[in-house]
Amino acid sequence: MHRTLFTIGYEGAEISQFLETLRECGIQHVIDIRDVPVSRKRGFSKTPLAAELALSGIGYSHLKALGDPKPGRDAMRRSDYAAFLKVYESHIATDAAQAALHEAVNLAKKNASVLLCFERSPKECHRTIVAAEMSQIALFEIRNVGVSAQSRSLKNVQTGAATLAHLAI
């Protein structure tokens, strides 16, 4: 039996919408895979986010070793996806990233979990790579969740080796 692993980007979302999306999906644990868990978006920096999640009964872990290193983020800002992939594929192969990957798998096996990063689109975020790697270890069904204040629709999108579903709230 496959367990569902969710991914989410908070770009453009308010913390209240984000929390409601997590509740609707039955999320029990957020796995933050941002290299730098600081945000200009109110409520999404590490400490305030962990506090908000705790108030909602949702666990929180920050796994820095799974974050996209600065050269990868710089490549994405330049829209150089090939360079980003090269940087991140090299990064995720490191001992620290592999240890964090297994920690993320163990967390997601125990509780309904979501991988958190900033980018709204999973195609523009390393969380898709992390989710696919986790799925190779533990056979997760991967679903991407998007936060929006406008619609409530679920549609499947085929992306590489993993099937992602977008849920707009």
Rank of each mutant, 00 (worst) to 15 (best):
K109M: 15
L167R: 12
C25K: 13
E20F: 00
L101Q: 04
I27V: 15
Q98T: 10
T21G: 01
K86P: 01
T47C: 01
V114T: 13
K86L: 05
P71K: 05
T163P: 15
E52C: 03
A168R: 13
V87G: 01
K123H: 11
V87Q: 08
Y60V: 10
E24F: 00
T21Y: 00
T7L: 01
V145H: 02
R73G: 10
T94C: 07
C125F: 06
I27W: 04
Q136F: 05
R127V: 03
H62T: 11
K155D: 13
I8K: 02
S121C: 07
R23C: 02
D80N: 11
L66N: 00
E24K: 08
E11R: 03
H166Q: 14
I27S: 03
A54K: 12
E89T: 00
H126G: 00
S135W: 07
R40G: 12
T4P: 13
P48I: 12
F18T: 01
C125P: 05
A161R: 14
Q17R: 09
E14F: 01
S16D: 15
F6I: 10
G59L: 01
Q158W: 06
A162T: 15
S135K: 05
H62Y: 06
G146W: 11
L55N: 14
A82H: 07
K109V: 13
I129Y: 03
K155A: 11
Q17H: 08
L55Y: 04
A51Q: 14
L115Q: 08
G146A: 14
E52N: 06
A96C: 05
L115R: 07
T47H: 05
D68Y: 00
A108T: 14
A96P: 03
H91L: 11
S45A: 06
D32C: 01
V145I: 14
I92C: 00
G72E: 01
S45R: 06
H166T: 15
F18N: 01
M76H: 00
S90E: 15
C125Y: 04
V114W: 09
A75R: 09
H102N: 14
R120P: 01
A51E: 15
S121E: 14
T128H: 10
A65S: 07
A108S: 14
I15G: 04
E119D: 08
E124S: 03
A108Y: 10
S45M: 05
A51V: 11
L116F: 04
R23D: 11
C117N: 02
R42H: 03
A162D: 14
E11A: 08
P37M: 06
P69Q: 08
S151M: 10
R3W: 06
C125D: 11
I33P: 02
L22D: 11
T163H: 11
S16G: 05
G12C: 08
I8Y: 01
R143G: 03
Q17W: 08
R34F: 06
T163Y: 07
E24L: 08
A50M: 10
R23T: 07
I8C: 06
C125L: 07
F18R: 02
T94F: 06
A165R: 10
V87S: 05
T47M: 09
G57H: 05
A165N: 08
I31D: 00
A132W: 07
H102C: 08
M1I: 11
E141G: 01
A75K: 07
A161K: 13
A149H: 12
F84R: 02
K155E: 15
D35K: 03
Q150H: 13
N106W: 02
